[in-house]
Simulated assay, not measured.
Amino acid sequence: MPLTPLDIHNKEFGRRLRGYDEDEVNEFLDQVIKDYETLIRENKEMQNQLLSLQEKLNHFSNIEETLSKTIIVAQEAADEVKHNAKKEAQLIVKEAEKNADRIINESLSKSRRVALEVEELKKQASIYRARFRTLVEAQLELLSQDGWEALDSSAAAATETLQKSSFE
């Protein structure tokens, strides 16, 4: 067990002949007591400082640990957001590709229908022209037959008869 200033103060030395000067020894002991008390006080102050610094160190260690965990959580959240954004972008691209394919297929289908309609119209026009040509040729043939001349002379005679009868 360490000495206390009281132990030093109460220490009694035996007397002998030719011993040390009692006043000098007492003065020295008083000085040792003062220095020892100072050292004990400083030691307690340093222990208190050490405790305070240890508490601060623990506090900062907790802050550091919390910050590290926060950084890890933030990194994980950022990775998750990045991953979700990639997934969403892929979905958007797939949807756009589907829409593009649908639009292309619809356009091709419309194009085929229009081409078929054009071909049908060409056929109808060709049929119409052929029928019209046949009709015109038939009419020309009728006009070139002899029956028209007879009709023409009968009509002229009928007209003359009508004119004569109207004068009479």
Score class of each variant (00 low, 15 high):
69 K>Y: 04
107 S>G: 05
151 L>W: 02
68 S>L: 10
73 V>F: 06
140 L>F: 04
117 E>L: 14
28 F>T: 05
112 R>H: 05
104 I>V: 07
138 A>D: 15
132 F>N: 06
145 Q>V: 01
114 V>A: 06
69 K>A: 02
149 E>W: 08
64 E>F: 06
9 H>T: 08
29 L>Q: 02
118 V>Q: 05
15 R>D: 10
153 S>M: 04
157 A>V: 11
33 I>Q: 05
152 D>V: 03
7 D>Y: 01
19 G>A: 04
99 N>H: 11
64 E>R: 05
114 V>R: 06
127 I>F: 07
29 L>H: 01
103 I>C: 00
66 T>N: 07
63 I>G: 01
111 S>H: 09
119 E>D: 12
114 V>M: 10
128 Y>K: 11
141 E>Q: 13
73 V>E: 13
61 S>W: 03
75 Q>I: 09
117 E>K: 12
33 I>K: 05
42 E>L: 08
77 A>S: 14
2 P>G: 00
42 E>G: 01
53 L>I: 12
127 I>S: 05
111 S>C: 05
80 E>P: 01
25 V>M: 04
25 V>W: 04
58 N>A: 11
77 A>N: 13
8 I>A: 02
16 R>D: 01
38 T>I: 07
121 L>G: 00
54 Q>F: 05
5 P>R: 02
165 S>H: 11
144 S>C: 08
15 R>V: 15
132 F>L: 12
76 E>H: 08
90 Q>G: 05
89 A>M: 09
134 T>G: 07
126 S>F: 11
167 F>V: 15
6 L>W: 04
28 F>G: 00
74 A>P: 00
168 E>T: 15
42 E>W: 04
102 R>H: 01
40 I>N: 05
25 V>R: 02
16 R>G: 04
134 T>E: 15
50 L>I: 13
50 L>H: 12
25 V>N: 02
116 L>A: 05
73 V>H: 06
37 E>P: 01
27 E>W: 06
97 E>F: 01
128 Y>S: 08
119 E>K: 11
163 Q>G: 01
143 L>T: 02
107 S>Q: 09
96 A>F: 03
72 I>Q: 11
113 R>P: 00
16 R>A: 04
83 H>Y: 10
49 Q>C: 05
77 A>F: 09
146 D>K: 15
